[in-house]
Nucleic acid binder design. Structure first.
Lengths: 123, 123, 123, 123
DNA sequence: GTGGTCTAGACCACA
DNA sequence: GTGGTCTAGACCACA
């Protein structure tokens, strides 16, 4: 479901948040689909339950999922949350591109970076 | 001389490294220009001396400045500063692209954003 | 018969207790009317039988319903249901007031809100 | 600075969030005022550092404070965050009042509840 | 079983 | 010193 890179330096909970967000935004996980429980997901990923729960709490705060104590965690059908996610990522990308341009990086180099990032996933 | 943004999340020592590099690239700090001492710079920036020290060590390691014991630190006259700026802009771009990908933005949309940024400048 | 809001954060058994109480107060469930069995009600609500069981126990404890072994559960003909609704509304109000106080809303502003709500109804 | 009620059933981290929010909204803690460090506050309150940090993370998520690793946590000057806090508390109060009215609670009883909540603080 | 709260304590980068 | 990440594990209410 999600691939964690333990050596990347990116916090594990962040990778979980990104992974779930992505699956929700892309519609791979549909509205009201149940997520793995905090405990079972922790076992599957080989991490501490607290780490998974931290991720779920953040996702809930972002409006991507909702959790019901005693029942489980589910994908929210909150389109605003998804749009907000995309908008802020777009804005950040735009400013990174502008910054890169000012540093003298060419359009083609930037496109190479994009390709590289998308390739990494497919490995 | 340099503006530190405490709330940006970018480590302060990183901001100092980029700041000095930028001033060197723009020619505001010319070859062999003397940098402020660690202590005085720390006071001026309102920052811990350790932080400035760390930044100077990195700048020296990257060949952007050189230090002479007992005299001070000076701008090196090469294009290492430019390389540093490109390197850090690339890294930032890469993480923005990764983040955008996780928010569900496609490769083509990202390329459009790049085009848009380059067009805007030409106006 | 009763609408459960899974996302509201209010425990489901509480929603069932309030729901039955409300129907009793409104006279939709009359004195001695038989309630659905725990099992069938659980199925209808899409809820765990334990949850319905817990709600029935509370309702019985509050004197809102009475149970006859082997026959079922029935609405008691008194004003305990009304008391229960008042009690729970009071509790909810108290916590909303506490929360509002912590958000910096003054006593007078709160009293204005009360006045406003009561006026609105009269229109 | 903040009084924790360990027996109230209200989560400790929630009490910290409410307490700090209130001091920020009321202006008692001004923009950029430094909060106690996670550790020292934990010692003062007699709770685990994780509990304080959870509160600080939520406050940061709400835009009430900002944290800088290595420096500390500070009150944000985010008026939108404060307004949002008040607006949502007001809305919740309004609906609790409406609900209480429907349950048959009088205006005067509600005002008594408000008084009671405000008195509790002063003890 | 399921989410949520909390303690105890280690380790890290940054200041 | 300061925030941040993470493990290990207990206990609770709810389903």
């Amino acid at each position: 479901m999600i691939q964690i890179d333990y050596k990347s330096g990116v916090p594990i909970y962040d990778q979980i948040v990104s992974g779930i967000s992505r699956l929700a935004v892309l519609g791979i996980l549909e509205k009201d689909a149940q997520l793995p429980s905090v405990r079972s997901f922790a076992v599957k990923l080989g991490v501490n339950p607290n780490t998974v729960q931290k991720a779920y709490l953040i996702l809930e705060g972002n409006g991507i999922i909702y959790s019901i104590a005693g029942k489980g965690s589910f994908i929210a059908g909150n389109d605003n949350a998804k749009k907000e996610l995309m908008r802020s990522a777009e804005k950040a990308l735009e400013s990174a591109v502008l910054n890169a341009k000012n540093a003298g990086i060419s359009q083609n180099e930037m496109k190479e970076i994009i390709k590289k990032v998308f390739l990494k996933e497919e490995e």
